[in-house]
Design a protein around this nucleic acid. Structure first.
Length: 938
RNA sequence: GCUCAAGUGGCGGAAUUGGUAGACGCGCUGGAUUCAAAAUCCAGUUCUUUCGGGAGUGUGGGUUCGAUUCCCACCUUGAGUACCA
């Protein structure tokens, strides 16, 4: 009987779906295990063979855990809000919901044919109102919360109001805006309702503010920092400029320290942790305030080196610093103004690309050194960033290279405050082993002591204090897009009002056009029914807006990361209409045990999701404050492009080995025209494009035409995309799954070459043959021999270790070895083949399910217990010892394992081959490691 | 520039409490079967060799009886990050 993968795979996929084989129960006595993939954005292009890699790995692990007796949650869904559907809508007028629905159908079909054990009854889609109801709900919770640094968690805004009512805000230790006014309890109660609202907004965890945002004119929207790469938009590579806009922001900075600390409690890849650590950017130092000569104002700076404060010889402000225009003297006005204008013109990208050029301008003003009382010049320079720290630095040229370069360039003095350090060529930034000099009370001290004493003195004298600073900025949460979650917000007297949670979801309205309005409002500005009636609590037509009971709704939508920041909790109870998920389900499933996805989400999704999880934990919604215990980044699968060589200015192609004789240019050809031996199907190539129809070909001697190959990113334009549909049709899903795992270590980037799949395909055919004699299924119930059991048990041991270590590539070779060895023994014993099928079933679920049932079983193999390894089958009585001379293995010798060291040494030394190797020399030393090796020195 | 990771046959890769380098597969070579092809099966495939053997895991050094594995320096590639005060 032939191995017919097409029929087998279709049948079992149908069986699993009909029997809901992989539906997870929310109540079970079994231990739980939650395996999750990062859910995909359903793009119009569908899947290529690189996409399922992580899904296959997680599916193997999920199936393995079921065999091991776990109640496994392994759901899948779609991150279905996003830009491509919207841009398609702008071009074609097609509603993004329709495009998205179509794309999801394609995705589902492609995923289904690979045989994943997803519990599809739990599917979520971020663009479904039943889902984004909870995205809106979380937004309201954030709005109604503030961060109390005393309790170090988010609390309800009502606790803040009651503090204000009792004692004003002097005692409040909160994470909030910087420009907060202070007020007493009496003043608070005297404030108008609007004023109170305005103050509270400065404390809320999501808040409206005029912020400098990254505005992308080409996309017509703002972008978050992590959506910008090298100064241009991550998507499309468009220019990005700084612009002031009123936007919703998320106070993620409140969680900076906890996001940092939490990294120590989770098993995530070190590079990913490093990039989050770097993104959060904690630095410890001090805030110091410098008075400005002749002004009431002072300049605050953040420094990590307060020990070098006596080395300050000037100060530098960012050109955008608010004090610049105020303190600049008349004499310097022109120079400063032209410098400010010049820097404003330069894009972020230019400024970043050009780090070496030193530029700046003197303001004419002086600051007073807080310790020495000396006057120091105040400069402006674009090496100081407005967005970091306070936008101003105390410049210590002897200890910081940038300050040093600036001072040299503008002839500013460079006082040396280090003992025995030469600073004639460069600054001395190293803080280890230095001794401070010329620094009043700090002189003679080492770095650590000087640092502590400097902060102590600043605090005592009242112009500075120790502080931890973070690079992490609050996250802009508004997008000027259509295809995203609407905010549950309307505006009354210019102040935002939350819609009561019981009226959620606020459903995205229909619009005529998906572009911004003519007066520059976001696309929702085109909606005609987009106002909130506070009496009837429903969305009504804009024409009813009277600013008394009917008010305009928010026109922005939420960013892409909103829906993906909590979806893993929703899978636990996806159809619950009253809560994100029930307490019981959240309590049972807790968090993700294994999360698999790409490393590109390191500082986006994975940071925001941790932030929301911690917030939801503070609010008592979820039971744990990290959402994923273990995370693995699967590597990218690259394409192997094929090139043909065309003679310049001729319609003539030259086979690979002959190009030296011609002047040729390489052009991509479709990889599907090329076989395993890199030979081109000339006919297919000719029919590919009209211009190749009459092309001439200079072939190899044997008539074949060879292409050259190169590994590149898989992309349509390089004609190297391989569609899993084609692979599944020709070789089957089991072969695809095995081959993707066989390519190499999961986390590694590796090239795809379809030719290699024949190896795993013939492995499956060999496995099939073990069960059949010609057309006839033939299985023996005789006891397995010692040798057969040895094969089975060494395979159990290795495969179990490999899966636990996520080393899926090596277990595929182990299966091949086992089948090769059993084939050699002509083994068809049930006792040997049944455990082998179970071992293999996570990798190749269809063929094993088929053979399992052919063996007479009536329930799915996925419920069979994992075979138990018994070491007694691997006990050996003899060892084939490698005999080395000076560490080089020269021959092997089979010896019983129960020999003593001395006996082994004697036998080896007496052996004629040893004598031949020694050629009469006497060995200096003989190392015998019983059971391992013999090494003869001399 | 900084940080991290990785360099092993023609290719993907295997081997680490230091102990037989190249498992498994692709490709390639030869053979069997076939009218022929596909499929299948068998043998071989790191390099070199005077067929005894010798060399060999990016380069150079070190530790060790013994190093792909540990240490130092360098080279190359990839990823991330970048005026962070």
């Amino acid at each position: 009987m032939q191995y017919n993968h097409q029929e087998i795979e279709k049948n079992w996929q149908k069986y699993w779906a009909e029997n809901q084989t992989f539906k997870a129960s929310n109540t079970s006595d079994l231990p739980k295990y939650y395996v999750l993939d990062m859910f995909p954005y359903p793009s119009g292009a569908g899947l290529h063979v690189g996409h399922p890699l992580g899904y296959i790995a997680s599916d193997i692990y999920a199936r393995y855990k079921r065999h091991k007796g776990f109640n496994v949650l392994h759901p899948q869904g779609y991150d279905s809000f996003g830009l491509p559907a919207e841009q398609y809508a702008i071009q074609t007028g097609q509603h993004p919901a329709k495009t998205t629905e179509d794309n999801i159908k394609t995705y589902r079909r492609q995923l289904d044919q690979i045989g994943f054990s997803f519990d599809w009854s739990r599917e979520v889609r971020t663009s479904n109102p039943e889902y984004y109801k909870w995205t809106q709900w979380i937004f309201i919770q954030l709005f109604n919360s503030w961060y109390n640094k005393e309790s170090d968690k988010a609390e309800d805004i009502s606790t803040l109001i009651s503090i204000f009512e009792k004692e004003g805000n002097a005692t409040v230790n909160a994470v909030c805006d910087e420009d907060i006014i202070s007020f007493s309890a009496e003043e608070w109660s005297a404030f108008s309702a609007a004023k109170k609202e305005e103050i509270l907004l400065q404390y809320r965890l999501t808040f409206l503010s005029d912020t400098e945002v990254n505005w992308c004119p080409a996309l017509g929207t703002v972008l978050a920092n992590d959506e910008i790469v090298n100064g241009v938009s991550e998507r499309g590579g468009h220019a990005v400029v700084r612009k002031k806009m009123t936007q919703w922001s998320m106070r993620i900075s409140a969680y900076a320290q906890r996001l940092l600390d939490g990294l120590n409690t989770i098993d995530w890849p070190q590079p990913l942790k490093d990039s989050q650590t770097n993104w959060i950017g904690r630095s410890q130092g001090a805030m110091v305030s410098f008075k400005i000569d002749g002004f009431e104002d002072s300049i605050s700076v953040f420094t990590t080196r307060p020990d070098t404060i006596f080395g300050v010889s000037f100060m530098t402000l960012a050109p955008e610093h608010e004090l610049v225009s105020k303190i600049t003297t008349d004499a310097q006005k022109e120079a400063v103004a032209s410098y400010v204008e010049a820097t404003a013109k330069r894009s972020e990208r230019d400024r970043m690309a050009d780090v070496k050029t030193i530029s700046g301008a003197f303001t004419g003003a002086y600051a007073i050194h807080p310790f020495s009382g000396e006057k120091v010049q105040i400069w402006i320079g674009d090496y100081v960033l407005a967005s970091y720290g306070t936008g101003a630095v105390m410049a210590v040229p002897c200890g910081d290279q940038r300050d040093y370069d600036f001072a040299k360039h503008f002839n500013i003095p460079i006082p040396n405050i280090f003992e025995n350090v030469d600073i004639s060529e460069a600054a001395h930034a190293d803080k280890e082993g230095i001794i401070i000099a010329n620094s009043d009370f700090l002189s003679g001290l080492k770095y650590k002591k000087a640092l502590k004493l400097a902060i102590y003195e600043m605090e005592k004298r009242g112009f500075g204090y120790g502080k931890v600073n973070y690079r992490l900025r609050d996250a802009v949460f508004s997008r000027q897009r259509y295809w995203g979650e609407p905010f549950p917000v309307y505006y009354r007297d210019g102040m935002p009002q939350m819609i009561d949670a019981k009226y959620l979801p606020i459903v995205l309205p229909d619009v005529e056009k998906y572009l911004p309005t003519e007066d520059g409002k976001p696309p929702l500005g085109n909606a005609e029914v987009w106002a909130w009636n506070t009496k009837t609590n429903e969305v009504v037509a804009n024409e009813l807006i009277d600013y008394e009971t009917v008010f305009p709704l928010e026109l922005n939508t939420m960013p892409g990361w909103a829906g993906s920041s909590y979806y893993f909790n929703r899978y636990m109870d996806p159809n619950n209409d009253n809560e994100i998920a029930s307490k019981a389900n959240l309590g049972y499933w807790q968090n993700i045990d294994l999360y698999i996805g790409g490393s590109e989400h390191a500082t986006g999704h994975l940071l925001y999701a941790r932030f929301w999880q911690k917030f939801l934990f503070d609010k008592g919604v979820v039971p744990v404050d990290e959402f994923a215990k273990k995370l693995i980044n699967q590597g990218m699968i690259l394409g192997t492009s094929a090139f043909v060589f065309r003679v310049e200015n001729e319609n003539k192609f030259v086979s690979q080995s002959k190009i030296a004789n011609y002047k040729v240019q390489a052009i991509h050809t479709d990889v599907s025209f090329v076989n395993a031996s890199d030979e081109l199907d000339i006919e297919a190539f000719k029919n590919w494009r009209v211009e190749f129809k009459d092309a001439a070909f200079i072939t190899e001697e044997d008539g074949s035409f060879k292409v050259s190959r190169e590994v590149e990113k898989m992309s349509k334009s390089k004609y190297n995309v391989v569609n899993p549909d084609d692979i599944v049709a020709e070789y089957g899903a089991d072969a695809l799954r095995l081959f993707e795992m066989f390519l190499g270590p999961l986390e590694q980037t590796k090239p795809w070459k379809t030719s290699g799949i024949s190896g795993v395909y013939s492995f499956l055919k060999k496995l099939w043959k073990l069960f059949f004699n010609g057309e006839q299924l033939e299985i023996s119930d005789e006891a397995a021999t010692k040798d057969e059991l040895k094969i089975v048990h060494k395979t159990i041991k290795k495969v179990e270790e490999d899966i636990e270590n996520f080393s899926f590539n090596t277990s595929v070779s182990t299966f091949m070895i086992a089948v090769n060895e059993l084939t050699a023994l002509i083994c068809n014993k049930r006792e040997a083949l049944e455990p082998l099928l179970i071992l293999l079933s996570p990798y190749a679920p269809h063929i094993t399910e088929e053979l399992w049932h052919k063996l007479g079983h009536t329930t799915s193999i996925s419920t069979a217990p994992f075979p138990v390894f018994d070491p007694k089958h691997l006990i050996e009585s003899a060892k084939n010892y490698p005999i080395s001379f000076n560490g080089k293995m020269r021959f092997t010798l089979e010896l019983p394992l129960d020999l003593s060291k001395e006996e082994i040494e004697k036998i080896v030394l007496d052996h004629p081959k040893t004598q031949a190797q020694l050629q009469g020399r006497t060995p200096k030393k003989v190392i015998v490691v019983p059971g391992k090796i013999v090494n003869i020195v001399g």
